[in-house]
């Protein structure tokens, strides 16, 4: 699978990362290298092998349904760039 510079731009946009044309070109080289590696691995016959979703063969531990957290809003909002009436402020969201 080959990647184009515009693919890189699109992926960067989805992740809200700003990349210049030069950076996009450099990233394209690196990503293409990774894709090349994956292509090589595709040659391995994986019939009958269950896809792995985690590197360890253990299962999820569950937590009892109890409220253990208390209000730490003041501490969290002390490091926020902008707050008002308890809300975090962000540039206007346009729908």
């Amino acid at each position: 699978m080959s990647l184009s510079s515009s693919d890189v731009k699109r992926i960067a946009h989805l992740a809200r990362i700003e990349v210049s044309d030069e950076e996009a070109e450099a990233t394209l080289q690196k990503l293409s290298g990774i894709l090349g590696l994956i292509e090589q691995m595709q040659a391995v016959d994986t019939t009958g092998i269950v896809p792995m979703s985690h590197s360890q063969d253990v299962v999820q531990r569950l937590r009892p349904d109890v409220v253990t957290e208390n209000d730490q809003r003041a501490a969290f909002q002390a490091i926020a760039p902008a707050v008002e009436n308890g809300l975090y402020l962000v540039p206007k969201v346009i729908e």
Binding site: A82, E84, N85, G86, L87, Y88, L89, V90, P91, K92, V93
Partner: peptide, 15 residues
């Protein structure tokens, strides 16, 4: 939740 009209040009976020 996003709260619109909190402050001019801004949106408020309640998590």
């Amino acid at each position: 939740k996003s709260v619109h009209g909190a402050s001019a040009g801004m949106s408020g976020i309640d998590l």
